[in-house]
Design a protein around this nucleic acid. Sequence first.
DNA 1: AGGCTTGTGGGGAAAAGTGGGGAGAAAGGG
DNA 2: CCCTTTCTCCCCACTTTTCCCCACAAGCCT
Lengths: 141, 141
Amino acid sequence: MFFGEYVYKLDDKGRVPLPPKFRRDMREAVVLTKGPEKCIRAYPLAEWKRLADELASKALTSASQRKLNRAIFGTAFAAAFDKQGRIGLPLPLRLHAEIGDSIVVVGVNQSVELWNEDLWKSERASSEEQAEQIQEGMGGS
Amino acid sequence: MFFGEYVYKLDDKGRVPLPPKFRRDMREAVVLTKGPEKCIRAYPLAEWKRLADELASKALTSASQRKLNRAIFGTAFAAAFDKQGRIGLPLPLRLHAEIGDSIVVVGVNQSVELWNEDLWKSERASSEEQAEQIQEGMGGS
DNA sequence: AGGCTTGTGGGGAAAAGTGGGGAGAAAGGG
DNA sequence: CCCTTTCTCCCCACTTTTCCCCACAAGCCT
């Protein structure tokens, strides 16, 4: 399970370190994909396979599912940690997430998201707002 | 169940001791989050998981579910007790709660809140005022 | 009064973040 | 076809931060 928010710098070669806790759960095998929003999603290999199986079981049923498959698998990249615990971010993904020289790593339960710092701030703000509304609906404190 | 109000000092490394009674209920596994108000919330791991599940089950669409996950997991930090019963407070959380060198630990039923001393005084004042009104409505005391 | 528990402080070791250099592979031009 | 140039990937080293352990002082209970 991943959680927490960490800010790192990309060096001029496009490498990012991940928090040590994350590395331990991602035994040197990571799959990077375009996130639904403007971010990069990183899955541990096992979790990625699980998602892939889930998709594959539905792939034959509809044309839209096939398109979905292409969108997901076609834009996915494998990445490995170097000896310092960093991964290189492919340029297409960096462009998609508009990531410059600073980056935010966010743990989101089963996966990890990589954000442009400013985009993340606004996304977090709206996310927290929504969470509050739901909490009030629960009567929870 | 947590209750009571305790004042401690942060050392220059950002560590806080928790009351011994609290430690026993939080068997060395704590999750720290940004509170809705300007404070830090600490949950026992089990309690935090329960809340996370409860919230996640409320989400309607997959998009709102993603936002919710970001709000829940992105703002959470894991913390462990050292041999002296202290936990280290991550810098982002300290900034959020405006915590300087003195800190107030407040037990709030299922969770524990960590406050800036001055902010807590005003929060307590308004809390008590509101509590009085509610109690009068109950014909209480 | 004594011993135990608790709050507070400091020091040392280990790990993590950041930056730079070198070797290998791929691509393009002669 | 070969050489050159460029790009990418991997390894190494340094600095900073974090974590953990030890030790002292004060308060409480017995």
